[in-house]
Simulated assay, not measured.
Amino acid sequence: MTIQTCEPGATRVTYKMDDGVTLVGEAFGAADAPPVILAHGGGQTRYAWSRVAQRLGDAGWQAVALDLRGHGESDWHEGGDYSIPRFGHDLDHVARQFGQKPVIVGASLGGNAGLLVAGQGADAPCRGLVLVDITPKIDERGVDKIIGFMGRHMDEGFASYDEAAEAIAGYTNRKGRKSNRDSLRRYLREGEDGRLRWHWDPAFIVGRKSSRMAPESLGQLEGALAAVTVPILLVRGSNSDLVNDESVAEFLKIAPQAQFRDVTGAGHMIVGDRNDVFAETLDDFLSGL
């Protein structure tokens, strides 16, 4: 792990994977404090966790928000290896870099990766797992909606930040919300042609289209959930496109010891929709450890 100076309040951290990919993250809080790893969803970056990470750092935790491979400042993989097991392998490697076992908080893709890490039973390198709007069994219609949105603007990109903001508002049904250029800079990159494109490798979404609901992936995730022995919390947005009541029922059937919280008024992006409620829910879970 290499550490460099970062923006005030955070420390830039990097982790080298066994296939040469380097992951970039930011750490908040004291380096010897109990660690919490924050893994974002597909198509996002570590900045999705900014307020949560800062809050955790101020509360006495060492919060590390990662850019997963192919996202943000982390390396793209030349061979397009963006399978869920690969993300899980990366997260496992990062979790083993600390002097004490971390709690893993994962949203969507990051949650699937965290589940594979925690699903190693007694060998799991973590002491708690928080899954943010993700379960092994999810609603395929919601997946189609998300992947459709991501793929729709993948090649041509956007002419301006306002155009990108309008597209996001249309997807989230929040038309009329003002564009936040500073925030969008964290999720978009400017190409040589001057157009703005998402800050992730297009190969990531191509792989999702062909493998997202593969039976072997579902079986692997369900097997991992059944093997989890650490405390686990599932947080669902009440308006989620992915996790419906059937998903939750199946989840609790496999892991009856898990805690479950439903966040009213939130969709799949719980942290962005109801950050205050999510932060309080996370605080309660962490204090219980």
Rank of each mutant, 00 (worst) to 15 (best):
R177G: 04
E163N: 05
N180C: 05
T172R: 14
G170H: 10
S160D: 01
E166Y: 05
R186M: 07
E192N: 11
R208V: 12
L196Q: 00
E222K: 11
V206W: 11
G194M: 01
H199G: 02
A227M: 06
L196M: 01
A214N: 13
P202I: 13
G219L: 09
A226E: 11
A165Y: 00
G191P: 02
E222S: 10
V206E: 15
S179R: 13
S211L: 04
T229I: 10
A224W: 08
E190S: 09
D193W: 08
E216F: 00
G157Y: 10
S160L: 03
R181E: 13
A169C: 15
E166I: 14
R186V: 06
R185Y: 04
K178H: 03
G223N: 09
L184M: 08
K209F: 09
G176N: 13
D162Q: 10
G157K: 07
A165W: 00
G170K: 06
Y187I: 08
L196T: 00
L188N: 06
L225I: 14
R177M: 12
K209G: 07
L184F: 02
R186T: 07
L221N: 07
A167M: 07
G176V: 08
G191V: 03
R195P: 01
G191N: 08
I232M: 14
S183W: 13
A214F: 08
V228R: 02
R195A: 03
R177Q: 14
A167L: 09
T172M: 11
S183A: 12
S183C: 00
A227E: 11
R174F: 05
V230D: 12
I168T: 06
A214Q: 14
A159G: 13
W198M: 08
D193M: 08
H199V: 01
R208H: 02
L221F: 03
Y187Q: 04
D201N: 13
R177L: 12
P215A: 07
G223T: 06
I205F: 11
A203C: 02
Q220F: 01
A169Y: 06
A167Q: 07
R174M: 08
P215C: 05
A167N: 08
L233C: 10
L218P: 07
D201G: 11
A165E: 00
I168E: 00
S179T: 15
R212G: 00
K178Q: 05
R195G: 02
R189S: 09
F204G: 06
S210P: 00
R189M: 10
E222H: 02
W198F: 09
R212M: 12
S210R: 12
A214Y: 10
A224M: 11
R174Q: 13
E216T: 00
G157R: 07
N180L: 04
N173D: 14
A227D: 10
S179W: 03
A224L: 10
F204V: 15
G170A: 12
R197I: 06
S210M: 05
M213D: 12
S211Q: 04
D193S: 05
F158V: 02
L234H: 10
Y161F: 15
A169G: 12
G219C: 05
Q220P: 03
G194R: 01
G176S: 12
L221T: 03
